[in-house]
């Protein structure tokens, strides 16, 4: 009898252990474990190594697959066009990067906090956790809860750091909460991610909020400094939501086009 139930009992014990382990990790996430850091660092190394050939293969496939069978001259001309287009794309890319870096530079002159510029090396906008990976980690001074911004506005906050990379929770994640103020009316609320955008919670029915109003960080919590642009009000509905208005916000940042960001090192004594 005991032998018959031994395996299910051990499995149940393992299951309960794993569940408790998850709950424990949720409440004790101050430090990223050594093994988890190894996984994050290792994944970044492999990712970087494979990223270029994979993208090159994809580009080659897209560019040349339809050229098979075309006469020699036509192929030569197309190759020339491809080369020129690629060259132009490179110039455009450099120009765009230049513009982005210039705006970040301009922003860095305006910002009174110590900061580092980071490159986005992976974005997960449709996963369980809407987050991105940046190429700056604890050795660059990045700490948990440091705000991440661009010249357009707030991107999110750092949720875990490894030595050379960090994970940033995006503003649009359902678990992201930012204390905010509607700039014109000074109405306060909490901006919470909705998965694809944001919404301001706890805005009373008598509070005046209009479509197009800018929403900025309130600076009440110790995480985000005051005055960072979050987005603009896109919809106000006072009929839904009981005591509160339903206020939707369009984030100022386009999360699908993030390439370089700035991390404010406010938790590193900056």
């Amino acid at each position: 009898m005991t032998r018959k139930f031994r395996t299910p009992i051990i499995l149940l014990f393992v299951g309960v252990f794993l569940f408790s382990f998850t709950v424990y990790n949720f409440y004790h996430d101050e430090h990223v474990s050594f093994f988890r850091q190894i996984v994050i660092e290792g994944a970044t190394i492999v990712r970087n190594a494979l990223d270029y050939p994979l993208k090159a293969a994809k580009n080659a496939w897209e560019r040349y697959i339809f050229l098979v069978g075309v006469v020699e001259e036509n192929r030569k001309l197309k190759k020339d066009i491809d080369r020129l287009v690629s060259q132009l794309a490179n110039y455009k890319e450099a120009d765009e990067e230049n513009k982005r870096l210039r705006s970040l530079l301009k922003l860095s002159e305006e910002i009174r906090f110590r900061h580092v510029v980071a490159r986005v090396i992976g974005v997960d906008r449709k996963s369980v956790v809407k987050a991105m990976i940046i190429n700056r980690g604890s050795i660059d001074g990045v700490r948990k809860n440091d705000p991440v911004i661009t010249d357009r506005g707030l991107v999110g906050r750092v949720t875990e750091t490894s030595w050379r990379v960090s994970r940033v929770l995006l503003l649009i994640d359902e678990t992201s909460n930012v204390d905010a103020i509607v700039q014109n009316s000074r109405v306060q609320g909490i901006v919470q991610g909705t998965g694809h955008g944001c919404a301001v919670k706890y805005v009373g029915k008598v509070d005046e909020v209009k479509v197009g109003d800018a929403v900025i960080t309130a600076g009440i919590s110790q995480i985000f400094p005051k005055g960072l642009l979050i987005g603009h009000v896109s919809r106000v509905d006072w009929r839904e939501g009981g005591m509160f208005k339903k206020v939707e916000v369009d984030p100022a940042v386009d999360f699908s086009r993030l390439e370089e960001v700035m991390v404010l090192l406010i938790h590193d004594g900056g």
Partner: peptide
């Protein structure tokens, strides 16, 4: 580790 979910 790779997706960023709570360990476990």
């Amino acid at each position: 580790g790779v997706t960023g979910t709570v360990t476990g």
